[in-house]
Simulated scan of single mutants.
Amino acid sequence: MAERSKWLVDTDWLENHLDSPDVVILDGSWHMPQEERDPEAEFARTHIPGALFFDIDKIADLSTDLPHMLPSAEVFSAAVSNMGISDGQTIVVYDVIGLRSAPRLWWTFRVMGVQDVYILDGGLPKWKAEKRPVTDAIQPRSKGHFSARLDHSAVRSHEDMVKAIRDGGVEIVDARSTERWRGTAPEPRPHLPSGRMPGSKNLPFGDLIDEKGMLKDVDFIKQRFIDAGVGLEKPIITTCGSGATAAILTLALDTIGQQRLSLYDGSWTEWAARPESVIERD
């Protein structure tokens, strides 16, 4: 089997560590509004034993109308501590799709300074398919002590994107569907035009995930980025609709050894809503 990401842990490993006090399991499931799913209610019905639900829309910068933007290090530290998470623990994140929003939570903890944060390979679908234990019992943890250290270099703002487009020398890779990127299909969020940032490349996140909800292997991923016209020798900024699935591209790029990576947190929801933004379409 070809090499895959060092940030993935398999279901055997996690089942063997369910009772480890230094392993924290987080369900980071999130769905687009039009999917009309309540991830927290789904979590309450079925989750991996000992898991906690992490709401990326609540532990966020609530001063903006943009969805699930990174909070400050102080806000994040307080929220995570209250969940019962402490410095030095190993964090394993998953979602109910297989690989959709878990990479966003993985990226968030990485940006906040956590080294030992991993994604459950195949997520809850693989776990359940293997008939591993699930529960509806929620086990709160006693308060922890977590100190976030925000890596500002890993996060891009609208102003950063304007500068990056103007100056060149970086690759911007968009995880949305090709039709949305070309401007030929509507955005799922109302009142937002579709289209793309000038000079951006397109690699729909689903192209990097197999039918079981698992990240594809290194050779496939590298070739897919090359086929999309991405210059892998350059710094790369990932983007998507709202900053969630862009993290799948970030995970994939890390997997093939890219180190100069950042993510545009506001992504298309911010870019398309700003009247000064330049939008290209086919």
Rank of each mutant, 00 (worst) to 15 (best):
M1G: 04
R156G: 00
D160A: 06
Q259N: 10
D282Y: 04
R132M: 14
T250I: 11
I279K: 03
V117K: 00
E171H: 03
S177F: 12
S157V: 05
D160I: 09
L105R: 04
D10M: 09
G206K: 08
E211F: 14
F43C: 13
M32S: 10
D207N: 09
D57Q: 13
E159Y: 13
L249S: 00
V75S: 06
I85Y: 01
G206T: 14
L261Q: 10
A164Y: 00
L105H: 02
P39L: 15
G195K: 01
G229W: 10
F220R: 05
R176W: 12
E159M: 07
Y118W: 09
H152D: 14
L99K: 03
E3T: 14
K128Q: 14
E130P: 05
G122K: 03
K212Y: 13
R166H: 14
L70W: 03
R4S: 10
W7D: 15
S29R: 02
F225E: 05
L232Q: 05
W107K: 03
E42C: 13
S5P: 04
A246L: 10
A73Y: 06
G195E: 05
P235T: 08
D265H: 01
M161V: 15
R274H: 04
V96H: 07
T46A: 15
D87A: 06
I25A: 10
V230D: 05
R132H: 09
E171R: 00
A102R: 01
M1D: 11
P186Q: 07
V80P: 04
T238S: 04
G243M: 09
G199Y: 13
S101K: 03
A273T: 02
R156V: 09
A129R: 07
D61E: 14
T46D: 15
H145T: 14
T64A: 11
G144E: 12
G168Y: 04
D27S: 10
H145M: 14
M1F: 12
Q89H: 02
A175V: 08
D174R: 00
D12C: 08
V155L: 15
I236P: 00
L105V: 15
V80C: 09
A148W: 04
P275D: 06
P39A: 14
T90Q: 13
V170I: 10
T250S: 05
D121Q: 10
S77F: 06
H47E: 15
R100V: 09
Y94P: 01
L124F: 14
P67T: 01
N202L: 08
G50K: 07
L124A: 08
A175M: 04
L52E: 06
S77N: 08
D57G: 11
P71L: 07
T90A: 11
M214W: 06
D10Q: 07
G84R: 01
L249K: 00
W268I: 07
P193S: 08
P275Y: 08
I91A: 07
T135Q: 05
R37C: 15
I59Q: 02
P71N: 04
P67D: 12
L253K: 02
T108D: 11
D219M: 07
I256V: 12
D121A: 04
D174F: 03
S20C: 12
P193R: 00
V23M: 08
L105A: 04
T46I: 15
E233S: 12
N82L: 12
S242M: 05
